[in-house]
Amino acid sequence: MDLHLLTQVLVGGVLVGGIYSLVALGLTMIFGVMRVINIAHGELLVLGSYITYWLFTLLGFNPLLSLFVSMPVMFGFGYLLQRYVVRHVVDAPELSSLLLTFGIAIFLTNAIRYVFTSDYRSVPYLTGSFYLGSIAFSIPRVVSFVIALAITVGAFAYLRYSRLGMAIRATSQHREVAMVCGIDVHRVYRYAFGFGCALAGAGGSLMSIMFSMHPEMGAILNLKAFCVVVLGGLGSYSGAFLGGLILGLVEGLAALYLASNISEAVAYGLLVFILLVRPSGIFGRAEAN
């Protein structure tokens, strides 16, 4: 086996995996806090991508600085979505929240298609690569990875040390006890949904400099995010981080060893396989029923 090629593929996989981790972190946070599976997560990410694209194309905004726009905008969007829509189904049967976020996903995809058309668009920024030894590092991917990692570390620190972060974790662990301790759980829900959307938006902005975008990619990214979250165990933050890196690696290896028409299915196959074999995730606890 060509060790050099393999190393190259592994490096590429980890670099993409960092973004997957970031996106999955938002998904797992929303699930952990209110047990809502956000089927619209991929579409929220696409919104983030388009924010970066338009800031770049119309105003010549630096795509990396556009994070300072896409994250707050998506935070606000998520906050309001929770405040006025999702709130009503948090305590309802699971069926309601699944269907509701599915409806939001369909609406967003087609609204984006209507407004931006189905054309492929890309943000030409930071092209080229540099070499360490004989391994090539694509510059946009390395930059995206570093920023994604920084945001992930920031999110972990925030969850660990800030008052709101602690409230979020407390609510995830046991809602009633959190309420008894004086935590306004509905406020926590709004912030958690906002943070989740902001992380998706950040992922979208970073992805826009790595890949070209189109409105339908939300569904694919959704499944990738689910794959990551299920790999790491639903609701587990460190699981989401490791799961993202694993998915990146597996996709890289699949692209190397499988025919291209099959390697596309690898994320879905992995997701189904894990759900069939070990649905609580590699790092998760068993949670049947």
Binding site: E94, V230, L234, A265, V272, E287, A288
Partner: peptide
């Protein structure tokens, strides 16, 4: 999948359709 809570089933079905189509 049906041994588990509904959420897992819902996610699995999202993926199964794509997988079979591909």
């Amino acid at each position: 999948c049906l041994r588990l809570r509904g959420a897992y089933f819902a996610i699995a079905m999202l993926a199964v359709n794509e997988l079979v189509r591909i």
